[in-house]
């Protein structure tokens, strides 16, 4: 019997998985790209208007602002989470006695959805209700913190809330990494007289490179998906100053009833992610290829 037919029942068992991949993932992807070349409004139709939707997309202020915002948000969010998450992990690691308490505190925000995070911070940062109003009530009447009201500042607050929510996750990852660091490495560095911050900078952080890559990937997917935190915290405002691409897609898909433009935006997002991921995927493949030099 041919060996490839001997496992037919295994192939059969995998069939549903294959069907899901082909139809649910690839199928919808192809359909989305196809729709971006149509003039579909509220209901999908199958005509062909070429690149008209893309032309409009790149001439739409809202899209340009969304792209700018996702870059600002992404950069601040990822860097902020990595830096703060690592510092928290160091802090918890050095205060081993209170580790359980501290870890719970820092991980708590993660138990909240982005929606709740956004709402809570919207209340706190709302000048008329939250921080500013309270400080003024205490007597500092000139105190002003109204970034949420300022078009060019709101996205920074969104990034801040995102960092607040997600840095606990990074902390947990980094803490696991720190725990894996050989204790003798610390001793060796102390004998060498290396200052503690330099030990972290030159020895520990390089040793935690895989943790940083994992955390960055997790955070990057959160950035691409970022929608709920913006909706809950600013609803894209003031005006359209804190819009993000995912919200653009959803709004035009449903409320604005312009499926053509929405799918064009979704396609641009897909291509961007692929372009960013390609070198990394290639590198992964390249590095894990047989013959990688590594002595035992």
């Amino acid at each position: 019997m041919q060996p490839r037919f001997r496992n037919w029942h295994v192939q059969l068992a995998l069939l549903p998985a294959w069907l899901i991949v082909v139809f649910a993932y690839l199928g919808t992807m192809v359909f989305t790209v196809r729709m971006s070349f149509t003039s579909s409004k509220g209901i999908p139709i199958m005509d062909d208007v070429g690149l008209r939707q893309y032309d409009r997309l790149f001439h739409t202020d809202r899209w340009t602002i969304s792209v700018e915002n996702i870059l600002i948000f992404g950069l601040l969010f990822i860097l902020g989470c990595l830096v703060l998450g690592f510092l928290l992990a160091v802090f918890v690691d050095r205060l081993a006695r209170f580790e359980n308490t501290l870890r719970t505190i820092f991980l708590y925000p993660l138990a909240m959805s982005f929606v709740v995070t956004g709402l809570v911070w919207q209340w706190i940062l709302n000048p008329a209700l939250g921080l500013q109003a309270n400080v003024r009530n205490w007597g500092w009447t000139s105190f002003t913190f109204d970034w949420l009201e300022q078009g060019d500042r709101a996205i920074y607050l969104v990034a801040f809330a995102g960092i607040w929510q997600s840095c606990g996750l990074v902390m947990a990852i980094m803490l696991a990494g720190l725990r894996g660091v050989d204790q003798e490495l610390w001793k060796a560095a102390r004998i060498d007289g290396i200052p503690t911050w330099r030990i972290y900078l030159h020895i520990i952080i390089p040793a935690l490179a895989p943790m940083f890559i994992t955390a960055t990937l997790l955070l990057a997917t959160a950035v691409v998906r970022s929608y709920d935190i913006v909706v809950a915290m600013t609803a894209g405002g003031p005006g359209i100053s804190s819009e993000v691409p995912a919200k653009f897609v959803i709004d035009f898909l449903f409320t604005r009833q312009n499926i053509g433009l929405a799918t064009a935006a979704a396609t641009v997002m897909l291509i961007t992610v692929l372009v960013v991921l390609m070198p990394w995927l290639y590198l992964q493949y390249f590095r894990s290829a047989p013959g990688a030099r590594r002595a035992a």
């Binding site: 050989d182 003798e184 490495l185 001793k187 060796a188 560095a189 102390r190 004998i191 060498d192 007289g193 030159h202 020895i203 390089p206 040793a207 490179a209």
Partner: peptide, 21 residues
């Protein structure tokens, strides 16, 4: 006195080499 100022050198079981250097 701090370890670095004691005039000692030390070798460990796990080698404890700085991994990325």
């Amino acid at each position: 006195t701090e370890p670095k100022d004691r005039g000692i050198g030390m070798v460990f079981q796990s080698y404890a080499l700085y991994p990325r250097m």
